[in-house]
Simulated assay, not measured.
Amino acid sequence: MRRRELLRAGLAGAGAAALSGVLWQRAFAATALPGDSPYGALRPPDTNGVALPDGFTSRIVARSGQPVGGTGYTWHRAPDGGACFADGSGWIYVSNSEIPVGGGASAVRFAADGSVVSAYRILARTRVNCAGGATPWQTWLSCEEVSHGRVFETDPWGRRPAPARLAMGRFKHEAAACDPERRAVYLTEDEEDGCLYRFLPETWGDLERGRLQVLCAPPGTTSGPVTWQDVPSRDGAGVPTRRQVPAALRFDGGEGCWYESGVCYFTTKGDDRVWAYDAAASALGLAYDAAAGGTLSGVDSITGAPRNADLFVAEDGGNMEINVITADGTVGPFLRLPGQDRSEITGPAFNPAGDRLYFSSQRGYSGARSGSGGITYEVTGPFRA
C-alpha cells in the first residue's frame, strides 16, 4: 500500500470525524516510530567511511576543491541540495553550493554504467544555494537561503541561462517540490517562524508569472484541514512574506520537501518533524515526530525512492545518518557517516532507475564552515521494489 493510500484509508476509517483532525492521528498508519530497517543492520564503515547494510557499496564521486574524476572540473564547496535527471541511457546529478559568495550549482553527468562523463557549472554568482527541487519539465530550482533569497531555474545540461523566478517570492528559501496534479510548486522557508508556501503558475511549466500563497491554520495545528491565502507582496519589501498573512501557520525551520502521489512531505529541523500535506484533501498531518519517541534527529533533506513508497531522510548533525521511513510507519537507519559529526548530510537523490543513491557530506571530516571538506557519495545496491 502506497503512502497516499494509507492516508486515504485513515480518512475512510475516521468518517465524519476526519475534519476534526482524528484522521491525521492515523497518518502513515501511525506516526512513524523506531524499528528495524527493512535493509537490516549496518556493517562497520567501508573504505570510504560509510556504514551500510549488507549488499550495498559506496564510492566517492567528488571532493570539494578537487577535480571530479577525469573531467578537470573542480567540485564546489559546501555541496547541498541535489537531484537526478535522466540523460539518455545515463543521468545527471545536480548539486547546490551553500557558500555566501559565488554559491550556485554544479552537475555531474554519468553514463549508463555509472562512469563519470563530465562535470560543469550550471549556476554562478548567487548566494547560499541550499536546497531546491526538480521540475517535471527537467529543470532544477536552486534556492537561496538568505533574507530576500531568490529561486533560480537552472538547466541540468548547462546549455541555457538560469533566470531568477522572482514571482516565487523573496524569502529565506529552502526546498521546492512540484505537484503536477494541482499545478503547484510547494516551497519551504528556513526561519524559526517560517511558513509553507505554494506557487501557482499562470501556465504550468512557466514560472515567470503566477500567485504565491501561504498555508493557513490555527496556531499550533499539527493535524486536520488547512487553507491557503495569497501573499500580498511577494518581494517582502517592508514586511517579510511570512508576516503578511496573520492566519499563516508557523513552522520551526522548514527544510526538505518532496511530493509524491498527492502528498507533499516536508521537514522542520527545529522540532525534528516530517509533515504530510494531503493536497487532495487539503489537510495536514505528521509522518514523523521525534517527540513521539523517534531516534531520527537533525531532520533535514528528504527524498523518495523511485521503486517503492519509502522516504529517505538525511540528518543535519544527529549521528550523521540517512534514515528510511516505510509506509507501514517504521523508521530506521539506512547509512551512517562516523567521524563526520561537524558536518551534515545533504542532497539525497536517486538516479532514475532507483538503484543508485547520491548525497553529500557538506563539510566532511574537517567540519570547516567554508565547506572545503565536502564529499559527494554514491551508494549502489539492492534497493527494494
Rank of each mutant, 00 (worst) to 15 (best):
Leu7Ile: 15
Arg8Val: 15
Gly10Asn: 11
Gly13Trp: 12
Phe28Thr: 09
Ala30Thr: 14
Thr31Cys: 14
Pro34Glu: 03
Ser37Thr: 13
Tyr39Val: 00
Leu42Ala: 08
Gly49Arg: 06
Ala51Ser: 14
Phe56Gly: 05
Ile60Leu: 15
Pro67Gly: 01
Gly81His: 02
Cys84His: 01
Tyr93Trp: 12
Tyr93Lys: 00
Glu98Tyr: 09
Pro100Asn: 10
Ala107Glu: 00
Ala111Asp: 13
Ala124Lys: 10
Trp140Arg: 00
Trp140Glu: 00
His148Glu: 11
Gly149Tyr: 08
Ala167Gly: 07
Lys172Gly: 01
Lys172Pro: 00
Pro180Trp: 06
Glu181Ala: 15
Arg182Leu: 09
Glu191Lys: 15
Glu192Leu: 15
Leu196Cys: 04
Asp206Trp: 06
Glu208Ser: 15
Gly210Arg: 03
Gly220Lys: 05
Ser223Gly: 15
Ser223Phe: 11
Ser223Val: 12
Pro225Ser: 09
Thr241Gly: 08
Val245Ile: 07
Ala248Ile: 03
Phe251Cys: 05
Asp252Met: 11
Gly254Asn: 09
Glu255Ile: 07
Gly262Trp: 06
Phe266Glu: 00
Thr267Lys: 05
Thr268His: 03
Asp272Arg: 02
Ser297Cys: 14
Val299Glu: 03
Asp300Met: 08
Asp300Ile: 07
Thr303Glu: 02
Leu311Met: 05
Pro333Gln: 02
Leu335Gln: 02
Gln340Trp: 09
Gly347Ile: 02
Pro352Arg: 01
Pro352Ile: 04
Ala353Asp: 15
Tyr358Gly: 01
Gly367Leu: 04
Ala368Trp: 12
Tyr377Lys: 03
Ala385Thr: 14
